[in-house]
Amino acid sequence: MDKHLRELLAGYVDGELSDEERQEFEAALVTDPELRRELDEFKKLKEVTGLMTYADLPEEVWENYWHSLYRKLERGFGWIFLSLGAIILLFFGGLTALYEIYIDPEVTLWVKAGLATLILGVVTLLVSFIRERLFAYNRERYREVKR
């Protein structure tokens, strides 16, 4: 079956064809038993799905919907502030602590070297993670879908 007839078949089942298209399809239907079989199949499918409806949620869930959503909205802001505060404190606190450790003559060279290696490891992992995310983002199929 050619592409045009397939499109017409879908449109015929859904009543989406113009008069001209409908006549064209019905003419093809007379000479093509396979087309007739597919039409019957689609009509049956449409009939079955027409009997169905989505299961609803209990009324009390709908009544509390907004309150539940509002809480999520507030908590979202809470998490943003908390994360920002934690990042600032960790960054500046970490820098200050590192500075204090490295200028302290009582801290042995081994501890300083261990600490430096640890920081290097964290930075490497962070860079690798960011690169992976960027790679995945660039290959995301639905990135261009406008939301």
């Binding site: 592409k3 397939r6 499109e7 078949l9 879908a10 199949e41 027409g50």
Partner: peptide
């Protein structure tokens, strides 16, 4: 089937031509 949308509405939502809606519906069915 379940939202009862017209082809034009579906085309608008999925950002595809009307003809593509028809052929995609055919294959999906």
């Amino acid at each position: 089937h379940f939202r009862g949308m017209s082809y034009d509405e579906i085309a608008g939502i999925l950002n595809i031509p009307r003809g593509t809606v028809m052929s995609r519906l055919y294959y999906a069915r």
